[in-house]
Nucleic acid binder design. Structure first.
Length: 351
DNA sequence: AATCCGGGGGG
DNA sequence: CCCCCAGGATT
């Protein structure tokens, strides 16, 4: 009976998928390069947000060789706005790795795929199943939701126990005859039908055997451990405007957010700056100029929200007649990869 | 086991 | 305001 129900579940989900799947470009290919590209892009990212980036990347880099030989800053530029920029850096690293050490061919199984930088359990399973029909179950946010509801399991999905338990469950339910379609089916089902808010239980193909629905617990599942609270930071960007139509940009290096992206010279403070003239010497130090006048671009600080940080940001316009060291031409500023916060300012200020 | 890492969309 | 999203790396 139990076996019959699992069979019923997997076949129903796959059947639902074949009837209802969205027409998406990465569903027209089994090229491991393109599947890999789509999977990296869609990590923690909605299909609607990732789609235009997939189009841009496949256009700019039709093959892994094209991606491998690109400048990293250009890869980041195309990635700009998609977030989690380590994905883009690892993407570029792995493209070079594939060309250099794998003769341009992606590994054809889960275990070997897992060795690639930026490829974890989920992505290795996705590529192995979709491209090579390996029985490797994927467990993403959609799968956690579908399985926790269908089997009425309240183990936190982001706990060590939950991760283990749901992976085992995914192994039990996967359709071994068609892992490629089943994996995509259960994710699509979670995204479109068994969605986080207001799932369509009334028309659900497995609503008669769904334990969560029977117990009226669908709205409480999945259970997640709560995340840490946000940290507040105060950013003062120094937007230099020289009379030679130049400005200054710096690359963010080391640890922390936006690694490899560019920004205006930054003075970070412990709290909101009330009088920027108090920081006169720090500004001279950072910008290496002597004569300037400074005014706030935004009176009210702009709060840029990241998952774990709120950035209270003020853009200060620094006008100078001095010659800039390492200045960049204003007409070339859009070539640099920048965080959305900076990109929005550039568009608004328009120099 | 916790924490970090973006940005956007929806209720 | 909150939560969630075709997760992975680091500490």
């Amino acid at each position: 009976m139990y076996y019959f129900d699992l069979m019923n579940f997997s076949k129903e989900i796959t059947h639902w998928y074949l009837q209802n799947k969205r027409d998406l470009p990465w569903r027209k290919t089994k090229d491991p390069y393109r599947i890999w590209l789509s999977e990296i892009m869609l990590q923690q990212t909605r299909v609607a947000q990732g789609l235009p980036y997939y189009e841009k990347f496949t256009e700019a880099f039709p093959t892994v060789y094209d991606l491998a030989k690109a400048e990293e800053s250009y890869v980041l530029k195309l990635w700009q706005g998609l977030g989690y920029y380590s994905r883009a850096r690892n993407l570029h690293f792995t493209a070079k790795d594939i060309v250099t050490n794998y003769n341009g061919e992606f590994p054809n199984n889960y275990k070997a795929l897992l060795k690639l930088k930026g490829v974890g359990d989920y992505t290795a399973s996705a590529i192995a199943s979709i491209c090579f029909d390996e029985v490797a179950p994927v467990v993403d946010g959609n799968v956690y939701r579908v399985l926790s509801r269908y089997f009425d399991i309240d183990t936190p999905v982001n706990s060590t126990e939950g991760i283990k338990k749901f992976k085992e469950l995914a192994f039990e339910v996967i359709d071994e005859d068609d892992p490629a379609n089943f994996n995509q089916a259960i994710m699509e089902f979670g995204a479109v039908q068994c969605k986080p808010q207001s799932p369509y239980c009334i028309i659900c193909p497995v609503n008669e055997s769904c334990e969560g629905l029977k117990n009226q617990r669908v709205g409480m599942l999945p259970v997640k451990l709560k995340k840490t609270k946000v940290k507040h930071r105060w950013f003062n960007y120094l937007v230099v405007v020289s009379n030679q139509s130049e400005t200054l940009l710096e690359e963010r290096k080391g640890k922390g957010i936006w690694q490899g992206l560019y920004q205006f010279p930054l003075v970070e403070t412990e709290k909101a700056v009330k009088d920027i003239t108090l920081h006169q010497s720090a500004i001279k130090d950072v910008l290496q100029i002597e004569n300037f006048s400074i005014t706030a671009f935004n009176k009210k600080e702009k709060v840029h929200k990241l998952s774990h940080q709120h950035l209270h940001t003020t853009f200060w316009i620094v006008e100078t007649t001095d010659n800039l060291k390492n200045g960049i031409l204003l007409q070339e500023i859009r070539q640099y990869p920048v965080p959305i916060l900076i990109g929005n300012f550039i568009e608004e200020f328009n120099f």
